[in-house]
Design a protein around this nucleic acid. Structure first.
Lengths: 206, 206
DNA sequence: TGTACATCAGTGAACGCGCGTTCACTGATGTAC
DNA sequence: TGTACATCAGTGAACGCGCGTTCACTGATGTAC
């Protein structure tokens, strides 16, 4: 049984290019992502991607959208494995947030740099998908924060605080000593950080 | 009086290249930074930078080092203008942290992505300068956090929490709606976020 | 105070590289009849 | 169930571009005597 010659039609090249792009970014950072390298990794000629993406920005946007989808799924998985009280649910979401940032460091950082995509013309499908996936991700965190929001005044600030805290921790410590500044000795786990907020639910506070 | 022909010697080309690089990064993001563009902006031929930097990574490192210097100075300026109690001092440092991130968004983000520089061989001068400037920056925040650290157990976690909070806020909101996710309505100012930590100094707590 | 000369800091042409993109083409697929 | 044909999804050569780097060179500066 010899190797079959590769069929002319790939089957699902669009998907394969997204996966190749995710891998390239993880391995070599955002600048390692080029159409030619993605095509090579997917096993097609460098001209093939043009049939699936309207240029590099469209591929990048599709990769970011996929990143958000995986991000949301990671948080959901962590949430599902946690106890049902609001504290445990929020802690689990945060742990998922951080776990994703460590598993997919380069993509995670790229997801929060939409500047690169801002002024580009994306095809409508990709733009819609991107918006949908990123919104879905945020809502997971938002829901987990809701029980801790003050009733009337300033309902957003608790959410923003928690988001900032977990996002900052994820960005700074997604890789040991990857941040430019010098972190002190060893970095405490996020499970030691979050309780310092001493969050109270609405009902408990009343 | 006609324009003098430009003298053969620039005078301070190294400095001019760093400034040009900072400007290019602010205007077009990290990928807009190339040796050729820096040289052009500094008014010299594209081969001139080779006399001052050992390749692009060295210039990038020098730019990041300069970024840290400006970052530290911004925090010092804010601190100097604040009242002397620990709460006000820390709040001022945080405000300086965030102000810098907004004034120099692209450089700020690049400063915390040292991956791009990690495996490169930098000349020793630049590597030393980079380390020195980044350490000095962090110490400013560290000092401002010190009064709030618990005495013995887990001295680092308070510092890490505050750093994560201010860094996350800076990264997420350094530009309106620049983050990929959908922020809720309007973003509260950081001066509304920090007090939620209800920080107590060591002496007050005792 | 001059003068010879080494060194420094520029210039501009040239090189090879990887990139995105275009183009004529071809094989595979799907559909009308 | 066949057949003609339109459409889709690939190929591979070619193009121009900006990039970092090298090289012989030249003008300016600094120093020994």
């Amino acid at each position: 049984m010899t190797d079959q010659p590769r069929p002319h039609h790939h089957g699902n090249l669009r998907e394969a290019l997204i996966v190749a792009g995710l891998e390239l970014m993880e391995e070599g950072g955002p600048d390692a992502l080029t159409l030619r390298k993605c095509a090579k990794r997917a096993g097609v000629s460098h001209a093939a991607p043009a049939h699936h993406f309207n240029g590099l920005p469209s591929l990048k946007a599709a990769i970011v959208a996929r990143g958000y989808r995986m991000f949301a799924q990671t948080m959901r998985d962590y949430r599902a494995a946690a106890k049902s009280d609001p504290q445990a649910q929020l802690a689990a979401i945060c742990d998922g947030y951080i776990a994703f940032s460590r598993q997919h460091m380069a993509v995670f950082k790229f997801m929060f740099q939409p500047h690169d995509l801002a002024n580009e013309t994306l095809d409508k499908t990709t733009a819609t998908e991107l918006k949908h996936e990123s919104t879905a991700s945020y809502q997971i965190l938002q829901q987990a924060c809701a029980p801790f929001a003050p009733e009337k005044t300033d309902p957003a600030s608790m959410e923003i605080m928690i988001w900032s805290l977990v996002h900052g921790y994820a960005m700074l410590f997604c890789n040991p000593c990857e941040n430019g500044l010098s972190p002190p000795q060893t970095i405490p786990d996020f499970s030691q950080i979050l309780p310092k907020l001493k969050l109270k639910t609405n009902s408990a506070r009343k």
